[in-house]
Nucleic acid binder design. Sequence first.
DNA 1: AAAGTGACCTATT
DNA 2: GAATAGGCCACTT
Length: 102
Amino acid sequence: MNAYERIYDTVKRIPYGKVATYGQIADLAGMPRKARLVGYALFRVAPEADVPWHRVINFKGEVSESLFRQGNDYLQRSLLESEGIEFNALGKVNLGRDRWQP
DNA sequence: AAAGTGACCTATT
DNA sequence: GAATAGGCCACTT
């Protein structure tokens, strides 16, 4: 079991309608301070893997992505909105309310 | 095998 | 609040 597997496993635990930050995922996956690895892992997720990568955002509540990724700039936001997560005018989500708290 | 890279985070101006 | 700088460490080439 490598680091990626653990990250994917943790991401899969995010419930519908909630979001989590990279640092949070890293912490829950047993690797505090390794948030970058989470981002790295998610960047390389295979489309066939059932990982809700769209529920993972940065700690500011903004949707981050590399822009090179399959044109998801709009998709991720759409997916979250369809799960009931709201964005303000700045494209941020209300972490205080929608953040996943295990 | 060494160097480069990055969907981040935190503390400091 | 916004902008800067530094730290972090597994993965790729």
